[in-house]
C-alpha cells in the first residue's frame, strides 16, 4: 500500500484515496464545435507513460479534495503532490532533480 501526501491533510494510506486518472486533461471550450477526433482525444486517449506521470487523486476518505501528483510509474514513488489549480510542474526539471 502506498503512502500518499494529500496537500491538505498530509501523509495518509492509499486506501483513503481514489485514483483520478491522467492529470491536466482540460475540457475544451465550445464542445459543440469540436470535431470527433478532438473529442476522442480528450475522452479516451491517454499518455500512459512509463516513468514520470502527472495524475489526479481524490482524498475521498479525508478532506474530499482533488489534487494532482507526479509519480514514477516504474517505482510507484511519488515525486510531488500539489493542489488542484496549481500549474503542471516541469517534468524534465523534476527528472534532473531525481538524478541528483
Amino acid at each position: 500500500m502506498l503512502i500518499i501526501r494529500c496537500p491538505i491533510c498530509g501523509d495518509r494510506p492509499e486506501l483513503e484515496f481514489r485514483y483520478g486518472g491522467e492529470g491536466h486533461v482540460a475540457r475544451p471550450a465550445a464542445t459543440e464545435a469540436l470535431d470527433d477526433q478532438t473529442v476522442a482525444d480528450r475522452l479516451y486517449m491517454r499518455t500512459n507513460p512509463k516513468g514520470l506521470t502527472v495524475e489526479r487523486w481524490r482524498h475521498v476518505h479525508g478532506c474530499g479534495r482533488f489534487f494532482n501528483a507526479v509519480r514514477d510509474t516504474v517505482s510507484d514513488f511519488f515525486v510531488t503532490t500539489y493542489k488542484a489549480g496549481e500549474p503542471r510542474p516541469d517534468l524534465d526539471a523534476l527528472k534532473k532533480e531525481a538524478v541528483r
Binding site: 500500500m1 502506498l2 512509463k50 495524475e55
Partner: peptide
C-alpha cells in the same frame, strides 16, 4: 491496482 503502473508488482491489500 487502483492506479496505473509498470512496476509488475501489486499491492498486498
Amino acid at each position: 491496482d487502483a492506479y496505473t503502473s509498470y512496476s509488475q508488482r501489486g499491492a498486498l491489500h
